[in-house]
Design a protein around this nucleic acid. Structure first.
Lengths: 348, 348
DNA sequence: TAGTTTGACTAAACCGGTTCAGTTGGAAAA
DNA sequence: TTTTCCAACTGAACCGGTTTAGTCAAACTA
């Protein structure tokens, strides 16, 4: 004798009304006498009734879940503090309303596409969060075509039917460069993210614009794929230049840490011989030596608000773009004035 | 005129048979003539019919999804290479069979419990992967009681109704300690994970047993919560000892990197004055200076096989415990022989 | 007072599958 | 030839909700 969980019919029978009326009462719809509604709620409550998500899903054609497809190599993911914090934020928005996050982690663009297709075909989610926007991002049209709702993290480079929720990187990057320039650095390099990615491009643009404003060289830019290995490679290239930079601005903390490793290995002392800054505000960055000057954003809050926005979009409510607090510079030990006579120094 | 996706009734009508027969044909059940089955499949195919997950979910009482609840602070998560790789592995097992991963990231034990309750109550998943096992882990009884199927990563410390899929940490830790001892280290410390966590305990035990076998001091153990900050704290404590260790074995890479920072900040040169080893085989570890000697496991494979095992359990198939390839030592630069006369040296 | 409106409620269809109890027709057995 | 049996197939119930059309009595209008 297994005790089955009660269904809406059980509640109806117990309350002496019809199934439909119970549904009405529980969904706060008009047409139910106040007394009856109260009695129904009471009965439902004492029977411990919970609506069946599956039945609701079928009859209302909704999934009560959001999707997130991450297309990155696990190697890049590991060490990157963004997604864990972001997902934790998403969770804080979903848990209270009984919704869930369906996560998919893929490693190729084809797998990414088919992942969205599957989510849509199966009706697994009502909407998705589009992260890591790329130039001419094909996902926007795809997701729209598949009939999914969505929000984008950051503004796409073309018209989009979806609201964007953004954190402006510019102030952070500008502050980092300004900080280095104020310290006296003349040759500041940038180890950038992939130029296919919009935030990579935006950070590069901010970088370049500050340098131009200050009349400094803005040609020391190396593009990477965001991995530690590529950050190391970029650093080696920059340090091998005849006119090597005295400061390097990295597009993420992992690369900055790898770059620090390369510099130290080559005999440069940081920050005496080379200043470096990261981007992420990762936890480890605070504990390496020297601790990493970096740019931080409130990632968890971003996750929470992105999920809330998407829920609103799905509910058909207002859905204006949201602009969150911009990225901020966090000065630590890895940045200092250049040694006045080391501008053209190569490895000791 | 929106083109609706065809339902099983459409297929039945088109093929001139009943709904039920179409269902039988599509699920490869006996009682359908070969010719008829073929025709039905053909019709379904050319109509582009896909079964509705929601309808199947309701009628078969299954979710076609697995759950993973991660209970960690985002700070610990960031930098930890385990979950990204693990999840990527899970995905490779799920995508081909049209199943999904429902992920929940929580920050307290209460939230964790209620997360499992919600997954079960909503019938969101058919089974869950239990990671980061603790002593007397309450989740095993809970999940069982909730009627969910499960697999555990590693063997729990009590009887469990669920199969375990494990990677033996011991050989890795033993190899790391042996490696250091072989190099001539006499005072080897361990910066351990939380003793509430079973893998933390197991690593500590392996550590202690090798030392005893070799007749070395096994008292240099500091427990941490796995964060970079706590790893740094532990390192400071160890280095402040009168008889400071000449080598430290860390329970994860993040703490090892933080420990390296502390050592360098205190003027110790690694590995000349202090050898360190990590645990994880994280990507950054290979790029810092000196590169980190560490212990690696095939995490992505673990994820894939854990998901496959859970799918089998859910399908009611065989479900024996699985033992994967044990952890392996990866020797890099951060370990070297101790300076013979520095055993009792304090900070330079 | 008769006709109309309205609020409260019921019955049944519906979402799109699965499953089970019957029905049918043809081949094998008697 | 008649009976029996079985494979092939149908129709309907079912999963647990939502939604729509329709019933009914009381309240309101004319």
């Amino acid at each position: 004798m297994v005790k089955q969980r009660p269904t809406i019919s059980d509640v109806a029978r117990e309350a002496g009304v019809s199934k439909g009326l119970v549904s009405f009462a529980l969904n706060d719809r008009p047409g139910v006498a106040a007394g009856t509604r109260l009695r129904i709620l009471e009965v439902a409550n004492e029977m411990g009734w919970r609506p069946s998500l599956r039945a609701r899903s079928l009859s209302t054609d909704r999934a009560f879940a959001l999707g997130l497809v991450i297309a990155r190599d696990p190697d890049i993911m590991s060490g990157d503090p963004f997604f864990p914090a972001f997902i934790a934020g998403v969770e804080t928005a979903l848990a209270p309303v009984g919704q869930s996050l369906v996560l998919s982690m893929v490693q190729s663009e084809e797998a990414e596409i088919s992942s969205y297709r599957q989510l849509a075909a199966h009706g697994r989610v009502d909407g998705v969060i589009l992260s890591d926007l790329r130039r001419d991002d094909p996902r926007i049209a795809l997701v729209n075509e598949l009939g999914l709702r969505a929000v984008t993290l950051g503004h796409p480079d073309a018209a989009s039917p979806f609201p964007a929720i953004s954190v402006d990187d510019s102030p952070g990057i500008r502050a980092a460069v300004a900080h280095l320039a104020d310290l006296g650095h003349q040759r500041i390099a940038h180890v950038a993210g992939p130029s296919r990615m919009l935030h990579g491009v935006r950070r590069s643009n901010s970088f370049a614009s500050v340098l131009r404003e200050r009349g400094l060289v803005d040609t020391l830019v190396v593009e990477t794929d965001f991995t530690a290995a590529d950050g190391a490679r970029a650093t080696r290239e920059l340090l091998a230049l005849a006119d090597r930079p005295t400061a390097i601005v990295y597009s993420n903390d992992v690369m900055a840490i790898a770059g620090l490793g390369v510099a130290q290995r080559s005999g440069f002392e940081v920050p005496r011989d080379l200043s470096i800054t990261g981007f992420d505000g990762s936890d480890v960055g605070a504990h390496i030596y020297p601790s990493l000057t970096t740019v931080t954003t409130a990632v968890q809050d971003w996750g929470r608000q992105a999920a809330e926005l998407l829920l609103r979009v799905i509910a058909g409510e207002d859905s204006d773009d949201i602009e969150l607090a911009p990225a901020q510079l966090l000065v630590r030990e890895s940045s200092a004035p250049p040694e006045t006579n080391t501008t053209t120094t190569t490895a000791p």
